[in-house]
């Protein structure tokens, strides 16, 4: 599954057309998540699908890729920390856990009346966290499942 294909058209279509389009759509779903269908989970799944598609067609070159296993673990943990941090930030300013209305973001009030802005930004932070965590987890699962195996269980390189 990890051998490389040498078709220039395939490389161009996947690397320059399909994966950027899928990733851009994932970002769109993430940014518009609280107003329209979509959200953090779907955006993370779409982002991971774009990355996995390029792995499946072009092969996995873990040395040169920016999405190495270590990076993906860091991204996953960062998403969880972002989610929990947003909730605890609201607790630090006197609200309940995940009570976005308590987070002081008065400098954003030019866009919407205060309470709405704060709640929308809180939901946005939560959704970015969920998207990062889902993206990292699904990519890691696909990475471990499709890793090349030398011998029976010896294919666990760093």
């Amino acid at each position: 599954m990890s051998e490389r294909h040498e078709s220039a058209l395939l490389h161009f279509m996947v690397r320059a057309v399909m994966t950027p389009a899928i990733m851009l759509y994932g970002l769109y779903v993430l940014v518009h998540g609280e107003l329209s269908p979509g959200g953090g989970f779907q955006a993370g799944a779409i982002l991971a699908a774009g990355l996995i598609l390029s792995w499946l067609t072009l092969g996995r070159k873990s040395e040169s890729s920016i999405f190495s296993r270590r990076t993906l673990i860091v991204v996953t943990v960062l998403g969880m920390v972002l989610y929990t941090g947003t909730g605890i930030l609201a607790m630090l300013f006197g609200g309940d856990y995940l009570d976005y209305g308590a987070i002081p973001l008065e400098w954003l009030d030019y866009a919407l009346p205060g309470e709405l802005t704060r709640r929308q930004m809180g939901v946005f932070g939560i959704e970015i966290g969920v998207a990062l965590a889902v993206f990292g987890t699904l990519s890691l699962a696909a990475d471990y499942l499709t890793a090349p195996r030398s011998g029976d269980e010896e294919g666990e390189e760093q």
Partner: peptide, 18 residues
């Protein structure tokens, strides 16, 4: 539908192939 298309048609197919 968005969840189904992202997970059912995208990711689980890859995991099954793996």
């Amino acid at each position: 539908a968005l969840t189904e298309i992202a997970l059912g048609a995208g990711v689980t197919g890859v995991l099954f192939i793996g």
